[in-house]
Design a protein around this nucleic acid. Sequence first.
DNA 1: CGCCAGGCCGTGT
DNA 2: ACACGGCATGGC
Length: 227
Amino acid sequence: MHDVLLRTYGPQHWWPAQSAFEVVVGAYLTQNTSWKAVERSLDNLRASGVLSIEGVRVTSIEQLRKLIRPSGFHTRKASALKAFVELLDRDYSGSLDVMASVPIETVRGYLLQLPGVGPETADAILLYALGHSVPVADQYLSRLAERHHLIELPLARGRRGYHTLALLTQEAFSGDVDRDRQYLYGEFHALTVELGKAHCRKIAQCKGCPLEPDLANLPKGGPSHKT
DNA sequence: CGCCAGGCCGTGT
DNA sequence: ACACGGCATGGC
């Protein structure tokens, strides 16, 4: 799948950000929100000089809320961003580099305890902001895995479903010893998102989907669930 | 106008 | 352990 999508869409060079902290902010803001809307919030933060650790640290939660309004759920996301910086200050000297030097499982545990941070946000931060080799799963990947019968339907959803998909991704790339896994995880997630953006609603019929040859082998009747 | 977006959380079974 | 609704706003 990765190679087919790579040939179709080309290298994605994810995550689209100018700094590690911008990755963190983007990971929060894009929760159930289109990236287009996130970009406007990021522009607002940048224009106000708030798109930095210090910026979030010194900005009031009310002001933060106004700036990120375009990307929705601003009440939750503003306080969640504050909580992240508080964790950073309290346990990692206010430095993402320090956070990146701590064992991955330890950091993941702390991230998951933060408000507004679930498995996908935590892994996106670990991979794209902290430079760890961690697969990232999402709804797009879940749909793809279901359609291609790579996992049983009961395993596709919920917290268990996320872990199953992440493990599946890890195993799928484990045999590739020539390419860098961190890079592959990053690009694969980016490519599945790109596929989702282009074919999210059409993937049921999958007309023009680059993975169509594989989807053509689906059982008669095809997928019945919503995409 | 209605659907949905690169989830997460609290509540109810 | 899941299913379900709420969270907010803007694009299409």
